[in-house]
């Protein structure tokens, strides 16, 4: 395989995120660094206990936005492999809800691309989290920012 042929694995999952498979996918001789960020479901937020957590998505659009973000990352940094996985439906406490993985020649761009992808995913990709708290409250969580139209 040519060194410059980038590969990506982008998916929405109903099953647990398989971190080992993601790592295997990211391995390439072109990379000197692989960064894997895993977002997990937190039990306590500001003294409130979360009992369970579920994600819903506008799936076809979510996949398109994930691809668009990877396009942007590939335009900014020499990213040889990218992995963006998000789990949907119920995710038990402490399990992985999202995985961002990048393989780059050197570590600075691995950290930068990974940070960009998770930060942008949390603003742009149409996925929403519903939390059930121990006091019986069940609420949709809303992000702080409206998603941006491209090129705005």
């Amino acid at each position: 395989m040519a060194e410059n042929s980038n590969q990506r694995w982008i998916n929405l999952l109903q099953e647990p995120v398989d971190i080992t498979s993601a790592y295997r996918f990211l391995q390439t001789p072109a990379a000197g660094g692989i960064s894997i960020f895993v977002g997990t479901t937190r039990q306590w937020t500001d003294g409130q206990e979360t009992i369970s957590l579920a994600y819903e998505s506008y799936e076809p659009m979510a996949l398109k936005e994930m691809h668009r973000l990877v396009d942007l990352a590939e335009n900014h940094w020499p990213v040889h492999r990218t992995c963006l996985l998000h789990r949907l439906g119920k995710v038990p406490i402490a399990e992985a809800s999202v995985l961002i993985g990048v393989a780059t020649p050197h570590r600075p761009e691995a950290f930068k691309a990974s940070r960009f992808l998770i930060d942008q995913l949390k603003i742009q990709v149409p996925i929403w989290k519903r939390e059930l708290f121990s006091d019986g409250q069940e609420i949709w969580i809303q992000g702080a920012n409206l998603p941006d139209p491209p090129n705005s």
Partner: peptide, 10 residues
Amino acid sequence: IAIITPVSGG
């Protein structure tokens, strides 16, 4: 068409 409110994935 879809109406999107601030997302909360991750």
